[in-house]
Design a protein around this nucleic acid. Structure first.
Lengths: 98, 98
DNA sequence: TCAGTATATTAGCAATTGCTAATATGTTTA
DNA sequence: TAAACATATTAGCAATTGCTAATATACTGA
């Protein structure tokens, strides 16, 4: 039980960041390049975005395919998508995309 | 959307701690005094436990009733219980209470 | 091959977290 | 009322996090 708690806490630590949440939510609508994510996530620098993507990738939550000079990221762990879905259900007023 | 992300990130930060997760999971089986939680959560000091309970209470995730010299904590936000339930479903081998 | 674009990486810093040790507060019982 | 118990609070520290600024790497088209 201790080990499971540690594992889940590790996952939650990765998700417990405003910018990473917005990145992940953006990708729930479909794969996207870093550049397009930069326009979706408000007020984020190129460096910060790249670092967040690296963290999510390191935890196998995201993955990417490289096409030309673009890195197209997509969701790799659909359990996380389900968890975010539940969170949105409970904590976002269920009226569209605010 | 930014505001909602901030709000959810704040919640996840509270949950993203091994000891707080174990405290919360223990309380999913029913209310418990601080002393009994101290025996359930492995290797936790009295002070650390009390501080974790204060954090969970401050975020209205837990609440307590004081009976005599005992503080009996219980879950106050059942949305969180549902989220933990989903996490357990996905990340704990579904074979009992490990 | 050079300039421009897209992305990653690194160093370093300020803020936050989680702990321990010590102490305080409130309750019970003898 | 004193001692013991149950819990909270505080200070202070080490570790972690998230950022910016700078730089590096890799691809593209002229």
């Amino acid at each position: 039980m201790e080990e499971k708690a540690r594992q889940i806490a590790t996952l939650l630590k990765v998700l417990a960041n405003e910018n990473r949440l917005m990145i992940f939510c953006a990708l729930m609508k479909g794969p996207a390049s870093v550049g397009s994510l930069a326009q979706t996530v408000p007020h984020i620098t190129q460096s910060a975005l790249s670092q967040h993507l690296a963290v999510l990738k390191a935890h196998a939550i995201l993955d990417y395919t490289k096409t030309g000079q673009y890195m197209v990221y997509h969701i790799a762990d659909h359990r996380v998508a389900e968890i975010i879905h539940v969170l949105k259900k409970y904590y976002c007023a269920d009226s569209g995309n605010e």
